[in-house]
C-alpha cells in the first residue's frame, strides 16, 4: 500500500516550520540507512519509507520505524531534524498544512493511515495529540475535558459524562487540584496544570495512541517532573510517542529512542543502549553535546 495524500481539507492555516535547507539535509555524512531495531513484530503503528515535504522542501527522507504497543518511544534530535513533522504525520495533523505531502506506508493496527477510506476524524480519535504549548480552549475546565466526548457522542447521559471528566482528570493527576473549580476557565490554570488539562482532554476520548510534541518545553522543572511521572503511569493503557528536546527526559520516560538528524532517521534502539552506547557517530555527537 503506497498511499500519497496531499492537502484535501482546504484550510488556509499556515504554520511555521523549522525545516533547514534541503540541500544540506541530503548530505548527512556517513548515513547509509537507519541503524538499529526499527522494525517490530505486531507493532501498534508501522511506518515504512516515509517521505514528507512542504512544497519544495523535503522534511523527512525515507524513514521506517515501528512503534510497539504500550511503550513510550522518544524522538530526539537537533531542532529542524523533522521529528515533529514525523509525529504530526502519524495522526494526519499535517493535513491542515497547505502543500504538505506525505508518501510511504503508514499503518495503525495494519490499517493504512493515508488511505482514502481512513477517516481523519476517526483516526484522530484513536491517535490523540498533546502540543508543545498548552492550548486549553477558552472554556471551563469541565467543558475542556467534556469537549471530545461531546463531539463524538461517547456518553449518553450527563452522569456518564461527569464520570468521564472525573476519571480523565484523575488519570492526568489533576483532579485533586481542580475538583472545587471545574467551572473555572481552563486558561486560568498554571502552565503545568494547563498541560495536564490538555493530557486529560486527550485521555477523555480514550485514544489508543497519544502523541506528545515536546510537552514540557514550556514548563518549569517541577511541572515537568509531574508530567514525566504521569507519562510513565499512562504507559499501562496507551502507546505514547514523545518528541523531546531534552535527552534527560527521553532517558527518564522512554523505553526506546529514535534519533533524527536533518530529516533522516539515523538510529533506533533501546533507550539505555542509545544513551550509553550509541552506534552512529552523529548520535554520539548529539548525546555528548557536540551539537544540539
Amino acid at each position: 500500500m503506497n498511499a500519497s495524500v496531499t492537502e484535501d481539507l482546504g484550510t488556509s492555516s499556515v504554520t511555521e516550520f523549522d525545516v533547514r535547507d534541503p540541500d544540506r539535509s541530503t548530505q548527512v555524512k556517513g548515513f547509509e540507512g537507519t541503524i538499529g531495531e526499527n522494525t517490530l513484530d505486531n507493532p501498534k503503528i508501522s511506518t515504512r519509507n516515509v517521505n514528507i515535504s512542504y512544497g519544495e522542501k523535503q522534511a523527512i527522507f525515507d524513514a521506517s520505524l515501528d512503534i510497539g504497543r504500550n511503550e513510550v518511544i522518544a524522538m530526539i534530535g537537533p531542532s529542524g531534524c523533522g521529528k515533529s513533522t514525523y509525529l504530526r504525520a502519524l495522526n494526519r495533523m499535517n493535513d491542515t498544512i497547505v502543500g504538505c505531502r506525505v508518501t510511504g506506508d503508514l499503518t495503525i493496527d495494519g490499517e493504512p493511515i493515508y488511505a482514502h477510506n481512513m477517516d481523519p476524524v476517526l483516526l484522530r480519535a484513536r491517535v490523540g495529540m498533546v502540543f508543545q504549548k498548552p492550548n486549553p480552549f477558552p472554556k471551563s475546565i469541565y467543558d475542556n475535558i467534556a469537549y471530545g466526548p461531546r463531539i463524538h457522542g461517547l456518553t449518553r447521559t450527563n452522569a456518564e459524562l461527569d464520570e468521564v471528566v472525573v476519571t480523565s482528570l484523575q488519570r492526568a493527576g489533576l483532579f485533586e487540584e481542580v475538583k472545587d473549580r471545574l467551572d473555572a476557565p481552563g486558561t486560568g490554570l498554571s502552565g503545568g496544570q494547563q498541560q495536564r488539562l490538555c493530557i486529560a482532554r486527550t485521555i477523555a476520548v480514550s485514544p489508543e495512541v497519544i502523541l506528545m510534541d515536546e510537552p514540557c518545553s514550556a514548563l518549569d522543572p517541577i511541572a515537568t517532573a509531574i508530567i514525566e511521572e504521569l507519562i510513565d503511569e499512562l504507559r499501562a493503557n496507551y502507546t505514547i510517542v514523545i518528541v523531546t528536546h531534552s535527552m534527560q527526559q527521553a532517558a527518564r520516560v522512554s523505553q526506546r529512542t529514535a534519533y533524527f538528524h536533518l530529516g533522516k532517521l539515523i538510529e533506533v534502539g533501546e533507550t539505555n543502549q542509545i544513551f550509553t552506547n550509541p552506534r552512529h557517530e552523529l548520535t554520539e555527537n548529539y548525546i555528548t553535546g557536540k551539537f544540539g
Binding site: 495533523m93 491542515t96 484522530r124 495529540m129 502540543f131 492550548n135 469537549y147 471530545g148 463531539i151
Partner: peptide, 21 residues
C-alpha cells in the same frame, strides 16, 4: 492556530472546531 490544532487533534471536524472552539 493552537486552538484549531487542539480541537482537530481530538478528532473534531472543521465545523465542530469552528462552532465550538
Amino acid at each position: 492556530q493552537a486552538m484549531r490544532d487542539g480541537s482537530l487533534a481530538l478528532g473534531a471536524t472543521q465545523s465542530e472546531t469552528i462552532k465550538q472552539v
